[in-house]
Amino acid sequence: MIVISKEFGFIYVTTNKINGKKYIGKCIYGRVNNWENYLGSGVYLKRAIKKYGKENFERKIICNAYSEEELNELEEYYLNYFDVVNSTEYYNIKITSIGGDIFTFHPNKEAIRKQRVKQMTGEGNHQFGKPKTNKMIESVKKANSKHIIIDDVHYESVTSASDQLKIGISTINYRLNSDNFPAYKRVMPKKELKINGYPCKVGNQVFDSITEAAKHYGISTHAMRYRMNSQNFPDHILLNQK
């Protein structure tokens, strides 16, 4: 059983109440400056706050982390999940947990920059106020309805476990995908997780599996899977697919 200690930090999303644009980041509770009022430090976010005023931004904590490692992995998970660097719905321009600033050398750097400038000078976001489609809602419900096991206790769904353990659904899903929480297991693993056993190549070195490569470089299997499918890491190759 994993012993959970005091919260180390949290993942948050800051939203511009005027145009709906967002920023995802991390913060530690022991921050020197007041963490309670912290909105983020992104370049474009700061410019937006200066333009619209702090009163037009609100921050919501997505989930807590109990160590620096978990905090970094959670940040990486959410930044990748929402594809914030390529999305025009976010102020983020880098993914810090998987190699720093990837905006500088991004192949579509200028197009992204122009789009962000255009949105920051406008009054609205094309997604703001739009309701979620039935397909999106059903997809989330299906993903959260699969049986899981936590600390040898069987739960009928992620939602059920969240209600009983008082842990956020997003946090549980992260832990199910993380090697750092072996007590969190899916009864029927997602198909995408099967690629962890595929051989891969990083640079000139070949590994028998993604899991082995992740352990070698000291990162999560989720991060390694992301790199295998990202154009930003051309030297990361999934041998049976690329």
Rank of each mutant, 00 (worst) to 15 (best):
Y81M: 11
D83R: 00
E55Q: 08
I11F: 01
K46S: 11
G20S: 13
M1F: 11
K194H: 10
V84M: 00
L71Q: 00
Y12R: 01
E138H: 07
S97M: 15
E138K: 10
H147G: 11
S139F: 11
E73H: 15
Y23R: 08
N34W: 06
I61K: 14
A161F: 04
E156K: 07
K141C: 10
E89H: 14
E110Q: 11
V3H: 07
A161K: 03
M136V: 13
I49N: 03
C200R: 00
T133D: 14
M1S: 10
L165K: 10
I210T: 05
Y77F: 10
T96C: 06
V84K: 00
K242C: 05
F10P: 00
T171I: 06
K135Q: 11
Y91C: 04
G197F: 06
K109M: 14
L193P: 04
K6H: 06
H154M: 08
E123M: 12
N92F: 07
E70A: 03
A213W: 02
V158Q: 00
S67P: 04
Q127H: 11
K114A: 14
F207Y: 07
E89D: 15
F82K: 13
N232E: 12
F57N: 01
S162F: 05
P182Q: 06
N229W: 11
F105H: 08
I172G: 00
G218R: 02
E212Q: 10
K17S: 10
Q119A: 15
L193F: 12
P131A: 08
I2R: 13
R47M: 06
E68D: 08
E192W: 14
Y184C: 09
E58I: 11
N80S: 14
H236Y: 12
S178G: 01
F233Y: 15
S220F: 00
T159R: 12
K26I: 13
H154Y: 13
K242G: 11
V140W: 08
S160F: 09
R175W: 04
H126S: 14
I102D: 12
E156H: 04
F10C: 04
A214M: 02
D83T: 01
Y174L: 03
S157I: 03
Y91A: 06
D163M: 13
A183G: 04
V85A: 02
G218Y: 03
M120L: 14
Y66F: 15
Y77R: 00
E68M: 08
A143Y: 09
K109T: 09
G122F: 05
T14R: 00
G122H: 08
M224A: 10
Y184F: 15
F233L: 05
M136Y: 12
H154F: 13
N108T: 06
P189D: 04
E123K: 09
I11Q: 01
N92K: 09
K215C: 02
Y226H: 10
N86D: 13
T133R: 15
Y78R: 01
Y184L: 03
E73G: 07
N177M: 14
R31G: 02
N64I: 05
I2G: 10
D208I: 05
H216D: 07
V187G: 06
F181K: 01
S87E: 04
T15S: 04
V153G: 03
P182A: 06
Y52H: 13
S157G: 03
N80C: 12
K190L: 14
V153C: 10
L165Y: 02
R225W: 06
F57H: 01
L74H: 00
T133W: 13
